[in-house]
Write a protein that binds this DNA or RNA. Structure first.
Lengths: 85, 85
DNA sequence: GGTAGTTACGAATTTCGTAACAATC
DNA sequence: GATTGTTACGAAATTCGTAACTACC
């Protein structure tokens, strides 16, 4: 597993689409799409579903985005804690 | 930050040296050394100190290895939880 | 026609292992 | 001289952006 894919996943969920998120992440839309698909393949779960032209979290995605956000926060805390030593 | 570097760090701390850990990680000793140095550079902290021919955790490393182990466990739980959906 | 996401492709970056090195025993 | 960790180098693998495509409005 990979924190970067998790960040892209969370950002996309928060922004409600790839376009918004990938500019915030300094990433092309294609790269963001690939990262999310890689994450889904690894977890064996679809985190987004297609609705119209866009993406929406699945119910599984809703659960995972919370856990992912928590893990990313914990990781950031670890870094912050280390740098404060 | 990077979970793989964290895994290498924790494994090396547990095994008390690169040699033991890197065989367990299916990684060359050189790669393990690089990962740990990259982690130290990113965190701005030395997690190991040289003692004789080997490595030993610094006091900061002692603190960080615990947090790292926890983060890795949380990440594994996330994956496990996702796959169970 | 315009927008959102996906996929193919070659380019750029990262990461790897081998080999040579320094230091300790 | 043997063992442990580090560093240089080219090779392998990953990841990227552009561009072409599909689907929806």
């Amino acid at each position: 597993m990979n924190l970067r894919n998790l960040r892209t996943f969370v950002a996309t969920a928060e922004d409600g689409g790839l376009g918004r998120a990938c500019s915030r992440l300094n990433l092309s839309q294609a790269a963001a799409s690939r990262q999310i698909h890689a994450l889904e393949a690894e977890l064996g779960v679809a985190v987004f579903e297609h609705v119209g032209r866009g993406l929406r979290l699945t119910s599984e995605g809703e659960l995972l985005v919370q856990r992912s956000r928590q893990l990313l926060a914990d990781a950031a805390m670890l870094v912050e804690h280390a740098r404060a030593l």
